[in-house]
Design a binder for these strands. Structure first.
Lengths: 108, 108
DNA sequence: GTCGTATACCTGTTTGAACTAGGTATCGAC
DNA sequence: GTCGATACCTAGTTCAAACAGGTATACGAC
């Protein structure tokens, strides 16, 4: 993960979160992450699309081609039941992890 | 990062933090991380020692052989000025990153 | 005595996520 | 007509972390 812009593992988590309100296409997922984190997290396309395919292989999301708001063909991703469970697991793991690190950093 | 036990990049951060109170040897660094995070973070030795060598190469820490509390030879690591600066940078990066992710996860 | 456990170090190999750096194509605006 | 935004893709590279071993000392239990 050369540049280390992103902490490994959080991309999947954020993608799953982005899909909690219904199907979204890949490009929109990336935009959602960038926007809701106010540019603090920008997922490169070379990381985003492989991550989506990875999640599809693991059956955390399913794919459907559809039409985007702009009238273009786009691949929509839908959170599966397994994906929803995975999101809960990963979110709680991230939180306890972040808390643990923050606690360690706070030691004086 | 196979098992995904640890979010990439945080090992270095925690090692640097562990050295803020003076020199510590590698084994003690690993123990400190495990103890202060109450087993939430257990750094494998196969990740810990290479990380220490990496930080040494980058001149964030320096090495000195010494005697441990148990009277054994042990390699002590000391935070350099550059290491201290790196710790500040990485700690603040982690905090803003964790905050951004937490904010995204909190969206309803 | 030797057996297990904790201490203390090490590295070769593999894995795989993220990055780099390209590529294709459509559409509206200027 | 070309520029930017949208929308998708993947081959190749990097390198942190995990895996899976290894060495050696000290100490108490048995």
């Amino acid at each position: 993960m050369p540049g280390s812009d992103v902490f490994t593992g959080t991309i999947d988590l954020l993608i799953l979160k982005a899909l909690t309100w219904g199907p979204r296409h890949g490009y929109a997922v990336g935009r959602w992450i960038r926007e809701t984190t106010e540019d603090a997290l920008v997922i490169q396309e070379g990381a985003l699309y492989p991550a989506l395919h990875r999640l599809e292989r693991k059956e955390f999301v399913s794919e459907q081609w559809g039409e985007s708001e702009t009238g273009r063909q786009a691949k929509y991703y839908t959170l599966t039941a397994r994906g929803r469970a995975q999101l809960r697991r990963e979110a709680s793991r991230f939180e306890s992890y972040a808390t643990a690190v923050a606690r360690a950093l706070a030691v004086t």
